[in-house]
Write a protein that binds this DNA or RNA. Sequence first.
DNA 1: GCATGATCATGC
DNA 2: GCATGATCATGC
Length: 459
Amino acid sequence: MAFEYETIDDLVSYAREAEGEYLKDIDKQNMLENTNVKGKVGTIIEASYFGYEINSKPEPDFADVGVELKTTGLKKLKNGQLSAKERLVLNIINYEDEVKVDFEDSSFWKKNAKLLIFFYTYTRDKDGKPDYRHFQIVKTVLHEFTGTDLEIIKQDFEDIKAKILSGEAHMISEGDTNILGACTKGATAKSLRMQPYSETPAKQRAFSLKQGYMTALVRKYIKDTKMISFTSPEELEGKTFEELLHDYFRPYIGKRDIDIADDLNHQLSRSKNKLALLSSRILGIQGTSLNRIEEFSKLNIKFKTIRATKTGTMQESMSFGNVDYEEILQEDWEESSLKMEMESIKWLFIVFQEDEEGNPVLKGIKLWNVPESILDDEIRNFYNEVKRILQEGFEEWPVGKQRRNNFPKSGFNGVCHLRTKGANREKSMVTLSDGQRIPGHAFWFNSRFVKNLVQELID
DNA sequence: GCATGATCATGC
DNA sequence: GCATGATCATGC
């Protein structure tokens, strides 16, 4: 070993000296030019900054002080906010071994209880390629898991373990859990390995810290954002996060919006987001900035109030941000931000249905994430279809006052479609590098698809 | 009545 | 000014 650290403080203060440095200056061994590994940044920090060999030992990188080294990229969103570029991938899950141990003895906890995280800015050059030389270390942090985070992680671990114990390792999906994920890992998405209680081989997976959680860490450590919490570790000891959410809403199910507002001493707004405002009030939050709720930010939960008419019809589809055509042209599905978004978001549907007089009545809530089967099939095919259209040429033609185009519609796969979105057509217009001009479009879930998801809550 | 195009309203 | 959520308007 090239060095040893007597105390964690020594290690952390040495790490802190890297803040502000560019990768090209840290890279003493010219690995930037000569290696082509994924995880280039981690390799360079380990080899050049700390001077040790890459390993995949079960103990932490700095075993003497029990600290594991990790590097992770940051990106700036269009709205100026910082977020984590990706989930943080940890050690591979050995299905055979993991079921035999409790959380405290798990491979995750033994290796990752204390993480020394190097956050760096992930920048691209003008051709859209990663500009490794100018990746900059902006922050180094010793992160430990405590409080509600730790309680949720323990629940996540038990979830993953339960799947393996019931011979369903091949059914594990990253969306099943909240902070600690089990993401696929391998040379190809098809890397398989055996599981103890079933003959069916399962995808190889690694423990990961999900993107929403990483983004929350970014905002906490780099932006110093203050957040509001609505749970406590004590509340989570006997209940899952999901059960807790149901507990909050249960007293109001079957009540009209005006009655709920009365109960809560809440002034019902007249604006169209009044049900969203009311819903956050049920959780004890004023206003709609739900991403300021710590748990919602960490679990990447997005709120969606759904209004059904008294006959149970639901008019509206569900939109996301506008898609980035250039990114779709450049990135394959596996690397796309659409995939990252779809697998990391959990939806909290809050369903209201109008009564005879047209008053919205709370019918119930549902937490939902995109199942892996739909992600791997319908949404992947949809992405590739959009890519194909962008490559072969976007077309549109006038129909009355409107225009029609050749992007996939709701009939394409019954799940999602592209649809215009923006203040107006001209303002939303995007010019691609090949000269195509295309009005802004967003990703939408079909209304009928969403309706089926919450059908059980509607009369 | 539904699917899809078009744009509004709000908050930061 | 822009991103995001929400909803209106048009065409079949």
